[in-house]
Design a protein around this nucleic acid. Structure first.
Lengths: 348, 348
DNA sequence: CGCCGGGATGTTAGCGCTAACAGGGGCAGG
DNA sequence: CCTGCCCCTGTTAGCGCTAACATCCCGGCG
């Protein structure tokens, strides 16, 4: 047993010498080639173990052309969705024997995106995964002429590149349907930023469900995913309600804004679900503990990550693969209830 | 102008040929060596630009022994702190010309940690950054005999390895002091998980401040960072208060638990700050929009990331560097107020 | 008995880059 | 005008690995 504190880096020929074979045989063992005698294989494996040898990945990458690294670029990881997507992706990549190199964009501009992909190329990652919900980012991705396989996540198919995502439209319909089922005449909507495909998809789903139900489609309010913007929307909504507008249900495009909205409503003396029902999107860990617990739509990020990696590996293997969007799930909690007319909640 | 759609990867000698120099001169230009005639340098640079050439990082890594990649290993990135730390780190690493390879541990066990570091070694990253707030992780880090420079983040100096962190003790003292200054006789505390150094540091800071002020040190409640555990603590606290215990102020070890606690209190008919003052830790984006807006302690993760990278680069350069912990900041909001005796809040 | 085929192993040639040394031309000083 | 030095540039030799080819040995068959 060799002491593991190596003064000099171990190389393949050290293993070869110890096993009494050529370095090429060691290489064959490591790469699992057949045509190695069982006896030899075992001796080599023992030598590797005893020495604690690790193949040099740079040398390997140089000759094979693959670094077994995936690049992931995203914006705004401080939001729940991107963060969870990262976790899901990393887990899936690791399971497949790949490392994940991460870039967090400061801003969702075309230039920043191009720069990030550029860095990935320089780093010679095998493929790039991009969380591209913002149009700027998507556009930048369009412009990047790269021989690298590219898979976009949550881009809503806005790009011809292979993509995976959670079905945002379906999620929004779920939320809207839920409120309609509760007896609300219609549902108001607070959107995410207009340049986000995700936000537009949720808007579209909301609109579609309303139309399908023959409900009027109210003018919607606009936010930017952040709690302050939800707060602002809440104030405006409260004012409109006080002015006599018939507002009983609101679908907010994400939980963070819903939280801000709830706070504003509360300040204005309006309480969910009694005065107005509120549904969010994302299912933050905090959602069940808001006042009131927030009804919301959950996205399965682990599954999303798994599919993204699956897709990228398929492309790497030259296979074409088409994946259906991941279906979201509605979680009904206390923030949504029947229409406020003094009756106790009855329906569902 | 060459068309950039390359059928074959560009190599250094392509650039050399175009610029009419040897590949070594190209190398010199790329690596910013002096002793290159301005005229030549410019011609080479133009050729690089026109061809869109990018040096092959694997070849470079092979010969220099450096991949210019940093490995970052963390647990539980779905929490705000780790996520923000990642962002800060990535930003700082990128600014220094390094890439960040990320591993998210499924569980904070020694084995998982060892495995992660192992992978990093195989990947030949230049150094490893570890977010090691859990004892298991710290212990694992102890056991990992690696020639790789290792810098721990938020480990509270529990390891002899160089470390950076936000001063948790100071943050907890800030929170406690704030409540004491408001006139509370003492401050109760909901801790994080016992095997987290961060949690213990906050506990220690709370205890120290109380002792320094000559205030009694109540038995504390235990949570695990999650909203449900905070909720649970809130219920118990409410019960104790109803049972006649003198509870007027609570310092909760993080915002997520504080949120759960607030919800439980609300359910029990207790409202902050009227019935009890609550202070959290982290400053989630949601904190200002809770009901009531949460007083909390903010950690500067961007700065933390910067220092971590600074430290790791110093070690890589052979310099020894000792950095002071990053000071946290208290943000007083509506969830904390004077002792409840029927008076309206006055001070601050 | 010699030849052939195929499995096991060794040898050689790069992958694309940087480091170390070699050369060559200009300018100052003798 | 030559020497010597310095600045610039080119040439050569690897980094550690894998792929392709060469070699060897063995058994089977004509």
């Amino acid at each position: 047993m060799e002491p593991e504190g190596a003064t000099r880096a171990l190389v393949m020929s050290d293993v070869a010498a110890r096993a009494g074979v050529s370095h090429q045989t060691v290489s064959r063992v490591i790469n699992g080639h057949r045509n190695v005698a069982p006896h030899t294989r075992e001796r080599v494996e023992r030598a590797i173990r005893e020495l604690g040898y690790r193949p040099n990945s740079a040398a390997r990458a140089l000759v094979t052309g693959s670094t077994r690294t995936l690049g992931f670029v995203t914006v705004n990881i401080n939001q729940y969705g991107p963060g969870q997507t990262l976790v899901g992706l990393e887990r899936a990549a690791r399971a497949a024997g790949y490392s994940l190199s991460v870039t967090v964009l400061d801003e969702a501009t075309a230039e920043a995106m191009r720069d990030a992909v550029d860095r990935f190329m320089a780093q010679s990652v095998d493929a790039v995964l991009a969380l591209a919900t913002y149009d700027d980012a998507v556009e930048a991705l369009h412009q990047v002429h790269t021989p690298l396989p590219l898979v976009t996540v949550q881009s809503g198919g806005a790009l011809e590149a292979p993509a995976v995502g959670v079905d945002q439209v379906a999620g929004a319909r779920l939320a809207t349907r839920h409120l309609l089922d509760l007896g609300h005449r219609t549902v108001h909507h607070v959107t995410g930023p207009a340049d986000s495909k995700e936000a537009r998809d949720r808007d579209e789903g909301w609109r579609a469900e309303l139309t399908a139900a023959g409900a009027p489609v109210p003018v919607c309010l606009h936010g930017d995913w952040t709690p302050p913007s939800g707060y602002e929307a809440g104030r405006r909504l409260a004012a409109r309600k006080r002015a006599g507008e018939d507002i009983t249900a609101v679908f907010v495009a994400n939980d963070q804004m819903a939280l801000g909205l709830l706070a504003a409503l509360h300040e204005e003396g309006l309480e969910a679900p009694w005065d107005v029902s509120v549904v969010g999107f994302d299912d933050l860990p905090e959602a069940p503990y808001l006042t009131p617990p927030l009804t919301t739509v959950r996205q399965d990020f682990a599954e999303l990550g798994r599919r993204a990696v699956e897709l990228v590996l398929a492309r790497l293997a030259g296979r074409e693969l088409h994946l259906q969007p991941v279906p979201p799930v509605l979680l009904a909690r206390a923030s949504s209830g029947p229409v406020p007319v003094g009756r106790t909640p009855a329906g569902l």
